[in-house]
């Protein structure tokens, strides 16, 4: 995950408390999504960014998961995300993020 984004998530966690945060990912690649999910739960697995060794255990979802999708206005989703559902491998993305969430997120 981008180092700047790691820093922002860390700051948000400190400001609002981890219990008040949910991370929604938009990654297009399952490996990337998994890495990002690990970064916001158990810490940066690449040992490069501010979240190295920081276990935030945040609840993390992919935007295409039904739990998130169902809460978004249909028109907005259609306009912003629907096309990408035809481009990426939705199942693989969801599995990648869900796997990390179920194992490492404090829900």
């Amino acid at each position: 995950m981008d180092l700047e984004n790691q820093a922002r998530i860390k700051e948000l966690g400190e400001e609002h408390g981890a219990e008040n945060l949910v991370v929604v990912l938009g990654a297009a690649d399952a490996d990337c999504a998994e890495l990002a999910a690990e970064t916001v739960t158990v810490g940066d697995p690449t040992y490069a960014g501010p979240l190295t060794g920081v276990q935030l255990e945040l609840p993390v979802y992919h935007v295409m998961e039904p739990d998130i999708k169902d809460q978004v206005d249909e028109g907005v989703y259609e306009e912003q995300v629907a096309m990408m559902e035809m481009v990426v491998e939705v199942e693989a993305l969801i599995d990648a993020v869900k796997g990390v969430r179920e194992q490492h997120s404090k829900l």
Partner: peptide, 26 residues
């Protein structure tokens, strides 16, 4: 590096847009 096949992702996006505009079958 996890960035995938960038040209193919672009082509799939163009095609998906074609589906949304009903110029193509999914």
């Amino acid at each position: 590096a996890g960035a995938g096949d960038v040209p193919t992702a672009n082509y799939r996006m163009i095609a998906a847009l074609g589906v949304m505009k009903k110029q193509l079958e999914r």
